[in-house]
Design a protein around this nucleic acid. Structure first.
Lengths: 165, 165
DNA sequence: CTCAAGTATCTTGACATCGAGAGAAATTGG
DNA sequence: CCAATTTCTCTCGATGTCAAGATACTTGAG
């Protein structure tokens, strides 16, 4: 089955036969697939009255385990946004009653963001929904193919995640 | 080499051992990698005084071949943005002298967006820069692995690209 | 021990961009 | 010739980044 990137690559080969555009076969697919996933996630989360960014923050806290709290700084590295954005997100989640801010007892500069009980339930419900949707998208692939794909992608993400930057 | 998604999956297995979170191994890596790529692209394009969104539009026109023109509607499907966004982008590109709007001779509702000579040069230069960067990122993988990865990703993108939605 | 300089953490405010939805203009088909 | 559709534009609210600021911690010379 052909996809939009096949057409894109074919067009480049016609217009710029002097260039080797093979890298696009991988990385353009990654970017485009990510945009499709964003849209699909947005729809899936709407059932739980959550925006994708809310899900990202709530589940980061949920994964931290009891007592479900992290500093804004820790949330930054997990969600790949800037500090100004995170302040804003915490404000809005706090206003909805899904998280609360607590002073960090060991560092008065710091803040701890803690999941409320409602926030915890919301995170759990919407994770289940997300997994169901993702399983449908991955239905195209066998279990072995999924493992293969995960391994190859890890080789690309690891440098970004480990070398700071 | 471990990446952030390995840590994320391990955390879920600890917190929610009742759920099968295997889908995240693939799709969370896709989303995170895409964000890293966005940042890297932004830096690469800055050398050519281009934003990523400008690159997307200019290269779509460049790929169309002589006379380098497409309707806004055609640009929508290639760049995965909404019509209001595209109007805005065309405005800004036109103001910078990289594209121009022409009336569609066969449909007076319609518009054709055409690349200027400057725009064409800018697209060509920045494509070369992007490919160099992407080759560096893919350096981790052998040619065979890149082909394998491209094939697996195609299976995931094809349904989105072919079934409208 | 003390204090100044440097570093870390979070917040704020200015600015840019995006998406959703309504609206205007032209075309199509019965 | 009219209703439905297509195509593009416009406006508005929401969100993101960046740079600067406020506060607190840390380090090291004297």
């Amino acid at each position: 089955m052909e996809d939009e990137v096949d057409r894109l690559v074919a067009a480049w080969r016609r217009e710029r036969p002097d260039l080797d555009v093979e890298p696009l076969e991988v990385l353009s697919r990654v970017s485009r697939l990510a945009r499709h996933l964003d849209r699909a996630r947005r729809i899936a989360f709407a059932e739980h009255q959550l925006e994708p960014w809310e899900f990202d923050v709530l589940t980061a806290l949920r994964r931290a385990g009891t007592p479900y709290q992290l500093s804004p700084g820790q949330l930054l590295t997990q969600t790949l946004v800037t500090s100004g954005t995170m302040t804003n997100r915490i404000d809005r989640l706090a206003k909805k009653g899904l998280v609360e801010r607590l002073p960090d007892p060991s560092d008065r500069r710091g803040v701890l963001v803690r999941l409320t009980d409602t926030g915890r339930d919301r995170a759990d419900e919407s994770l289940a929904g997300l997994l169901a949707q993702e399983r449908a998208i991955l239905g195209e692939l066998s279990r072995a193919q999924r493992a293969e794909l995960a391994g190859l992608l890890r080789q690309l993400t690891a440098p970004f995640d480990n070398i700071p930057g």
